[in-house]
Design a protein around this nucleic acid. Sequence first.
DNA 1: TGTCTTTAGATTTTT
DNA 2: TCTAAAGACA
Length: 698
Amino acid sequence: MNELNPQQQLAVAHVEGPLLVLAGAGSGKTRVVTQRIAHLIDLGILPSDILAVTFTNKAAEEMRARIRSVKNVQVLTCTFHSLGARILRESIQSLGYQPNFAIYDEEDSEKLLKSCLDELQLSSQKGLLKEVRSAISTAKNNLQDPQSLAEKLIREAFSLYQGKLKEYNAVDFDDLLYLPVKLLQNNESVKELYQNRWLFLLIDEYQDTNLAQYTLAKILADKHHNLFAVGDPDQSIYSWRGARYQNILNFERDFPGAKVITLEQNYRSTNHILHAANALIEHNPNRYKKNLWSSLGDGDKIGLFIAQSERHEAEFVSQKILQHVAEQKFPYDQIAIFYRTNAQSRPFEDALLARKIPYIMIGGQSFYARREIKDLLAYLRLLVSSSDVIAFLRTINLPKRGLGPATLDKLIESAAQQNTPILTYCENPDVQLSTRQQQGLREYVQLIRHLRTRISTLKLHELLAELITGSHYIDFLKEDPETFQDRKENIDELIGKAAEWEEDHENPTLQAFLEELSLRTSTDAKANIPSVKLMTLHNSKGLEFPLVFLVGLEEDLLPHINAKDSEEKIEEERRLCYVGMTRARKILYLTLAMHRFIWGISRSMTRSRFIKELPSQHLLSLTQRPHNVQPSQHTQFTENATTAPLSAGTQVLHQQFGSGTILRCFESSFGLAYEVRFPDSETTRTLVAKFAKLRPIS
DNA sequence: TGTCTTTAGATTTTT
DNA sequence: TCTAAAGACA
């Protein structure tokens, strides 16, 4: 207690009633939360009476570990989505689903929705799928039923989609919030059950709750009113997922008698960093004012570097990393690189790899999103549930069993008509099938039936191995020799992970394994060696690093081009930048590139407006004078540019690529550009006229 | 039904 | 630039 400031002490000592902690960046939120739970336990409250809800799995794991290290007790800490899954596993039957329901990820639910649009004969309209998908997601996050929607097309697609989910005994991500709320709203006894199960509720990142999450929290806390919410409106960055930072501003209205505590002392960053970040966020007009201060001294100014290209930017960052490691003995794992979009990671990976700097990407393409992994998991899903049509479709032709789209349509339709789970139906189908098809289907069903008998006797990884042998999946992978080795390694890794998971869990059921995987992003932060962390700004929330590189500070990237149509979205981009800056403890670099390849074409970029919003006294320019700059491709070639226009069909000679034919001329952001086919190397390249020095062959 | 070729869309962010 | 779906054709 003595090590806490007065506001923190107040928050830690709070026991009953609603409390909102407005916790500015770096204000010691995590400590307050863990100390407060420790305090509750000291008062004799049972750990099982406490529920802590966080925004990410990672945050949940961290909180669980912290509580265990302080008090050596198990407190339930989970994300909203896993809380939803937990409630549904126990109580979904009153909504007419079976408890062994599957959880569909984005890919699965998109496939299902597509089949719905096909059925409504709407799939020809391009772009519609995405539009309907996002409309359904928004509706669920706002707790709207299909019938309540205004637009007929969306209403029908939503109805059909939701009906099929139920028929297939599956829920999508949004259902993990939407269905529990419906359940609690419509069923008094279920509501009581959960209201009495958790007497003390803690919600982290409250500014990022959407209506469904907010409602879930409100209902759960409605009996005992012991809701401890923590958040910071300046760090609300998920409005595109339906988050309403207004929830945090309305807390006192929504929870009568609520207390509010503001934490303004920052224990993380030195003052150049903190003041610059404060100045940035001040540019958001509609903001609940607060003033973060720090007693950690001025520290270093923020380094600003303007690179010629994204490669140059990555070179700079990796060089600086080596320099700091050598001079100040920063371990690699105290260093992070943040970017706006996942696509920006590539050049950094290349540069780090080239200098043998160990790194880990957080987020991005998940291990579990790989095709071969999802294939095997789909097989496993069928062991748990016979109704999972999407998993059936995914696996039925792995390897090929001669069942094409037409036949599968018939099977699925027949099964639906007879109200029979697809797998059960396939044991005895009454659809015309060729001998080959009959045999293929029989083998498939028998494989699954056989594996089911082994679930209770085999270990998880043994079951997986038997599945792989039994289905001849390896033979299927061999059909593509180019990717075979990679995919084989991934499968071995999956088997390893399954074995490991089994060791770590007391009751390692197949269903629990699948559920955890479908709710987990890729953040397997088990790094054996200290590594530099690469992640999106969204993923950086809640973390801190002594040395931070915030890269790609360019207009159209940060703020992102898609945010430019409204001031509110720009404000959210600004908060995103603020979140990134406030992760830095000691040293912060901001970088940008003058030119960047986007969709294969080089574009000129301009510096982000957010840089201009930072007071110059906190910045130190690190950009080399032009004469020191290694000539980039662009400057080098501009010197002796030849720009005489050439027309399509002209034979041309290129210094490096040899002779070729111009296929097409068009305007790029550098002016006239050509698409040229080079027969020697069998490649087609896009070349900018003024850089590429093409000579016509006469 | 299976295979090869063409084309469109993706790159905003995540559970 | 890359991938997956659609389309063409055997």
